[in-house]
Computed example of a mutant assay.
Amino acid sequence: MNAAEDRAENIRLLRDSAAAVVAPGDMKRIRVLRFREPGFDRATWQAMCDMGWAGLRVPEAAGGSGLGMQEYCALAEELGAGLVPEPLIPCAMSARLLAGDALAGLLSGERVIIPAWQECANTLDAQGDTTVAGGRASGRKMFVPMAAGADAFLVSGRDGLALVDRAAPGLRLTIERTQDGGNFGTLSLADAHCTPVAGDMAAAIEEAALATAAYLLGVMDRAFAITLDYLRTRQQFGRPIGSFQSLQHRAADLKIQVALTRASVDSAAATLDSAAAPALRQAAVSRAKARAADASMLVTRQAIQLHGGIGYTDEYDVGLFLRKAMVLANLYGSAALHRRRYAAAAPDQDDE
Rank of each mutant, 00 (worst) to 15 (best):
A43K: 08
A43M: 05
A43L: 06
W45C: 04
Q46G: 13
Q46Y: 04
A47G: 10
M48Y: 03
M48L: 13
C49L: 06
C49M: 05
C49N: 09
C49H: 09
D50Q: 15
M51Q: 15
M51E: 14
W53N: 08
W53E: 03
W53L: 09
A54L: 11
A54T: 14
A54P: 03
G55W: 00
G55A: 14
G55Q: 12
G55K: 11
L56M: 15
L56K: 08
R57I: 05
V58W: 00
V58K: 01
P59V: 12
P59R: 03
E60V: 15
E60N: 08
A61M: 06
A61C: 12
A62E: 15
G64C: 10
S65K: 15
S65A: 14
G66L: 12
G66Y: 01
G68Q: 06
G68L: 07
G68C: 10
M69A: 06
M69H: 08
M69P: 03
M69K: 12
M69N: 11
Q70F: 01
E71V: 09
E71H: 01
C73E: 02
A74N: 06
A74Y: 05
L75F: 14
L75K: 03
A76N: 07
E77R: 14
E78Y: 12
E78S: 11
E78P: 10
L79Q: 12
L79H: 09
G80H: 04
G80P: 10
A81W: 02
A81Y: 01
G82A: 13
L83N: 02
L83W: 09
L83G: 00
V84A: 02
P85C: 14
P85V: 05
P85M: 11
P85F: 11
E86I: 04
